[in-house]
């Protein structure tokens, strides 16, 4: 069955950034805490805990709707979106369209960085805040 990434227990997050750095390392071939499909940050200082932004795999994704070139397309089965680098204009329309700010424009490449729901970050979370969850 198709699965998608879900931050199921962010109240357990310790803010280590291991998930983001795993995405950067394993998906994007980078040492980075920004080039990542999941984006963890503190919300009002470290006393207030952490939240995670990542693609929620919307039905009828608004990022796809605004993409002028078709670089972003919907994956079958509601598993988020597919990104085709060679079609992308770097216009960042998708960045503005995402209702949960889960797409970030890379500072250096100007490409959108979006979660692929591949699950490679999950084993690097020391507190099982993240999980791959079966679609309904």
């Amino acid at each position: 069955m198709a699965k998608v990434l879900r931050a199921v227990a962010m109240e357990r997050c310790i803010g280590c950034y291991a998930c983001m750095m795993a995405c950067a390392r394993l998906v994007h071939g980078s040492l980075s805490w920004s080039r990542s499909g999941i984006y963890v940050r503190s919300v009002g200082g470290l006393t207030a805990g952490f939240e995670a932004s990542y693609c929620l795999a919307c039905p009828r994704p608004p990022c796809v709707a605004v993409c002028p070139t078709g670089a972003l397309t919907e994956r079958p089965g509601g598993r988020g979106v597919r990104y085709q680098r060679e079609l992308c204009l770097r216009c960042a329309a998708c960045v503005g369209a995402c209702p949960v700010k889960a797409i970030r424009q890379d500072r250096e490449t100007l490409e959108p960085v979006v979660c692929l729901h591949c699950g490679r970050c999950v084993p690097f979370c020391p507190h099982a805040c993240l999980a791959m969850v079966a679609m309904d």
């Binding site: 280590c16 690097f124 020391p126």
Partner: peptide, 14 residues
Amino acid sequence: LRQIACSGCPVGCI
């Protein structure tokens, strides 16, 4: 209340 971590450390000793 909880433990947190330095950035880049999965231990969380704070």
